[in-house]
Design a protein around this nucleic acid. Structure first.
Lengths: 341, 341
DNA sequence: GGTTAGCACTCACATGACTTGAGTGCTAAC
DNA sequence: GTTAGCACTCAAGTCATGTGAGTGCTAACC
């Protein structure tokens, strides 16, 4: 392990680099941070830190910048605790007190808020409901030939689809069927439904065609729920950061962010880790190897729900962002609990 | 009016500038376009065209670029007709044949497709349903204390909200109420509902508190429908255009695009004009005065529904984009007609 | 009188020499 | 082990210069 003085110097370098975005030289450190040693000594230590892989050199005569390994050490043990300011907490509380009616609005607005406070791109992965259960369904008459099937999952999402009425069947048939399905399937997950309850329902309903269609609707509704939703916030904030003053880099990232499935995969990689930080080259996806992602997973009653994340340059205010994500996490969990039934 | 030769020269300049994005010189025009006159003559004509306000000069020794006024003349009468290629039509048809179940998906995917084909940002304003009517509502039991109210508008959107059950009332009360409301309000618009049918319903329902709550739900649902939705596509395409190789410009536009309400206002300004082109400084909003917006409004049974739009640099392929928007418009109208009931 | 060749002039942009300054690495002295 | 001193490196800025695309004007041409 590196000795304490090296740690102090590394800490100073990273702190400085995070706020200035400029390579840090020995003189700067000696002047700004009172380490009681001369620039020359710091130079020696810097050379050592570079040997050990914590710092990098763009060219011989420029200051040092932290490597992924350097940031990692920083995040794990050198980082100053940066609790949230009262002003930020007040802003968040105020926002969360303004009751939002629809669950999807909650996620969208949460994403906006996070990006606003961190000046980085935020991602909110809304509940993954693969394990979540069917709650109930209902049919609504549309015209002579069609009904609307409304399916609810127990996490609060409602899906609706148009359904053709089979020849000769009446709306009352559908209502009866809804009763049977609700009686048999309530509380069951998609996997469960496929295996368990089918026979009983089939026989209660009687009409094979009707049954087929209804089950298709239920499956599809639960299936589309399974595809969790991703909400993005503050993509234009990207360009605030000096490292993204290059159009090509921005384009690359924006293209990536537009690819829903890719971003979901990236978030999935850290799902369940609590508060997780993935720094620069630690990321598997090549497009974001000069970025860091901090994700916070939220649970409810022990069940994994989704995650909040911030994507920004490796030169990121880790401490502050982590505090924020934690706080947002608590608040969001509270709100979801309120929606859960 | 300017004579025919001037028109031909202006046409050549704009065509060239649209494809090259470089200021156009007299020599280039003489070489590439067979106008039967020498560069010197073209220079004289260009000077005239600049006097008349159709062209602009960055500095004395650089070629000309079209002014907003120049583009306007071009779009109105000089522009070559650019019918869509078979390949493009095939792509669109193929896409529209793949039946999309949910109406909101249709809009989102339409936006993506437009941006893909035009390499510009696209905007789709989904049906504005202020005139659209209440179709029916239904209550679904949730637990002992709550029900879910599902409200449908006749344009195919379904909204659902959680509703606390008043003390002492039963689910049967709600079902009865739904019957009354459906019987009285079906086909009515929000404005209509507020004035006309209230008394009859009030008396049929009897319970004042129940009535209050239900009407609140209906109003809010119709109200949130009224806020039409805006779908964006291809924001990262912006950076493909050489005029947006500057990060600050991109940031400004992205910020604008993130502001939902602003973009809606901009689209509203051209609603109902059929195919409308707004060029550069013709735009009222300062952030987009070096951009052009082409919007196409779509109707159904004479009723205004929404619009498709493309936002890009003034140097835009007007002819191609307009053909595309027209074609997309037809297709989208078809799809919506299918959804309408 | 409209058209064109010719020519001087302008201006952005590229190139290369030079300077500056921040920063390192090494060595020798403390 | 620490530090001062010094030579060295390299990016970035500055300046002079050259180049080329392009214009505007004038005088000759048809």
């Amino acid at each position: 392990m590196i000795d304490e003085r090296k740690q102090r110097i590394l800490q100073a370098i990273i702190n400085d680099y995070i706020s200035s975005a400029e390579p840090v030289g020995s003189r700067t450190i000696a002047r700004k941070y009172d380490l009681g040693v001369s620039p020359a000594t710091i130079r020696n230590e810097m050379a050592d830190l570079e040997m050990l892989g914590y710092l990098e050199h763009l060219h011989t005569s420029s200051g040092r910048i932290p490597s992924s390994k350097g940031y990692r050490l920083y995040v794990d043990s050198l980082m100053p605790v940066q609790p949230m300011t009262d002003r930020e907490k007040a802003l968040i509380d105020k926002w969360y007190k303004a009751k939002v009616r629809r669950l999807d609005q909650v996620f969208q607005e949460t994403a906006k808020l996070i990006s606003k406070l961190t000046r980085n791109v935020s991602l909110v992965l809304a509940p993954q409901i693969s394990q979540a259960a069917f709650r109930c369904m209902q049919f609504l008459p549309l015209d002579e030939h069609r009904v609307i099937a409304v399916v609810m999952t127990d996490a609060g999402f409602v899906e609706n689809r148009i359904m053709e009425m089979a020849e000769g069947s009446t709306f009352e048939d559908f209502q009866r069927m809804a009763g049977v399905i609700n009686g048999n399937l309530a509380g069951h997950t998609l996997g469960n439904i496929r295996t368990k309850s089918l026979k009983e329902i089939k026989s209660s309903i009687g009409d094979e065609g009707l049954y087929q269609k209804a089950m298709e609707i239920v499956s599809k509704a639960l299936d589309s729920e399974k595809k969790e939703r991703l909400y993005l916030g503050g993509t234009s904030q990207l360009m605030e950061q000096p490292e993204f003053h290059d159009v090509d880099k921005v384009k690359e990232l924006l293209l990536m962010l537009e690819e829903d499935q890719l971003m979901k995969d990236i978030l999935h990689a850290h799902l369940g880790d609590g508060l997780s930080v993935s720094i620069g080259q630690e990321n598997k996806y090549s497009g974001i190897q000069d970025c860091s992602i901090i994700t916070a997973t939220y649970h409810l009653d022990g069940e994994l729900l989704g995650s909040l994340a911030v994507l920004g340059p490796t030169r990121m205010e880790y401490g502050k962002t982590m505090s924020l994500l934690n706080y947002m996490n608590e608040n969001l969990t509270e709100v979801i609990k309120h929606f859960k039934w």
